[in-house]
């Protein structure tokens, strides 16, 4: 009997301890996520009411007038991100394949170091560099300069994620391809890249989400523009820069528009993240060994 009671009290103590620990962990989670949720609700609360159709389709209204939109900034952001992707995705995937498939030797080792350094560059430094080598000689801010700045930020992310996801594919799959009488090149293109295509796409979307919100390098490269994009040689508006300009302005209406812009930007980045998550989980493979 005494033994049973001892057992009971021990059991209750364990239950209490478990409950207490659970409470602590929940608290930690709330503290960690709380501020994030507050930022999110703040942006929704202030941004959503200011959103309307003309926000997406119209040019900014002249100073002092109410209304107008950020259509040009949204389009400008999309143009520069698309241009940067066009240049950087093929280059990034190519370099990632090289590092993953031919990892030995001094060239890959050096390249890997350079990529790591590039990835850790502060974005304002990248902006300054592009300002010095493109904006100053051309004597003009331009969408080209903005594109290059975003591209330099994007390449290392694409290279690193590509390399990592390809390395996750065990070597015996490559051997299986070689044993079928396929050349190394065909094994890489048709088996390695193909079987990891979703994971690579995930990396690309994450890179896009990362550069979509970049402001600092665009401030001193693409600068901003109050008109519709007219050419890549001209200064071009972008969403983050427009938000920045409106937020520091003295006008109430511009503040509202800045919130609407912030909401749009956050939605875009969220959407990119959600897409990449969906891609990651829709692998169709068993046991999740190779999710994609």
């Amino acid at each position: 009997m005494a033994r049973d009671q001892l057992h009971q009290s021990h059991f209750r103590r364990r239950k209490l301890k478990n409950l207490w620990m659970q409470f602590l962990m929940t608290l930690a989670t709330v503290i960690a996520i709380g501020p994030l949720l507050m930022v999110f609700f703040h942006i929704v609360a202030l941004g959503l009411p200011s959103l309307n159709f003309s926000f997406f389709t119209e040019l900014p209204a002249p100073t002092g007038e109410v209304g107008g939109g950020m259509g040009n900034a949204i389009l400008g952001s999309l143009v520069m991100i698309a241009m940067a992707s066009l240049i950087c995705i093929p280059v990034g995937i190519g370099a990632g394949v090289f590092l993953a498939e031919f990892p030995r030797g001094s060239i890959p080792r050096t390249l890997r170091l350079v990529i790591d350094l590039l990835a850790s560059l502060p974005s304002i430094v990248v902006g300054l560099y592009v300002y010095a080598v493109l904006v100053v000689p051309m004597k003009s801010f331009s969408a080209w300069a903005g594109t290059w700045a975003l591209g330099i930020l994007m390449v290392p992310i694409v290279v690193k994620t590509t390399e990592e996801v390809l390395r996750l594919l065990p070597f015996h799959y490559r051997e299986a391809g070689l044993a079928l009488g396929l050349s190394r090149w065909r094994v890489i293109c048709s088996i390695v890249l193909r079987s990891r295509r979703k994971a690579i796409l995930t990396g690309i979307f994450l890179a896009l989400a990362r550069i979509a919100g970049e402001t600092a390098p665009l401030l001193i490269t693409a600068f901003g523009n109050r008109n519709w994009p007219s050419g890549l040689g001209e200064p071009m508006a972008s969403l983050p820069v427009q938000i920045y300009n409106y937020a520091i302005s003295p006008f109430e209406d511009w503040h509202r528009q800045a919130w609407a812009g912030a909401f749009t930007l956050v939605s875009l980045v969220f959407a990119l993240n959600l897409i990449s998550r969906a891609l990651m989980t829709s692998g169709g493979t068993r046991g999740g060994e190779l999710g994609g």
Partner: peptide, 21 residues
């Protein structure tokens, strides 16, 4: 060697159907 391998099939210890195929 690429050509010769197409005349010699190989089956490995661990089943390895190509992922995503």
């Amino acid at each position: 060697p690429v050509e010769i391998r197409s005349h010699i099939g190989m089956v490995f210890q661990k089943p390895n159907p190509f992922p995503g195929f």
